[in-house]
Amino acid sequence: MIRVENVSKSFTLHNQGAAVIPVMRGGELTVARGECVALTGASGAGKSTLMRMIYGNYLTASGRIMVGDLDVAQAAPREILELRRHVLGYVSQFLRVVPRVATLDVVAEPLRAVGSSEAEARARAGELLAQLNIPERLWQLSPTTFSGGEQQRVNIARGFAHPYPVLLLDEPTASLDATNRATVLALIEEAKARGTAILGIFHDEAARDQICDREVDVTRFTPGLAA
């Protein structure tokens, strides 16, 4: 479902003397349906960068990034928007939401985007929030005032609301206590069982070992760091 072929990227900082910072070269990986692959490597080696490139959030300088049948590196904005709506989910490390929107609606949003009714979407959102131990009295509040752990759980609930065939997870268990960690891992297992292709970044080694089938060390792709 994901096939990254020979991708490279560098950042050019025009306002800082046009400094060019190469961050990736020869990037390669595949993720098949039902597989969970972990990205590993030291901090700054390019794990989040590669994930963002797959999501289309960062541009790719060369190479191909196939998600299903679409080459994200070359796709038109419209095609990527469509992909993000139906196929490709992304749970980032930090919750970034529209202020003042109720938690329930934040989580329901991906389902509304694919055409679910308000009632259906909210019902499913409620299930997930309950599973992740967010008390119902918080559902009508905006998550901007929640604790880090609570925000992370809302983030995850949103990521799993719509059953994406492909999922990108950036530190899904960070800031979580043991109970919630277990819940999240269970959600990931469920998704895997559904045939979802999952790419994840896990600093939590135990979690990584529990659910990931393979590891890809991005250090291999970092110019200057490669052995």
Partner: peptide, 21 residues
Amino acid sequence: TGLTDQVLDDPQHGYTQLLVS
């Protein structure tokens, strides 16, 4: 020009980088 999140998170042109920063 591009996706909003891409242009704001990975600006390519010097002027865009200036605006974002």
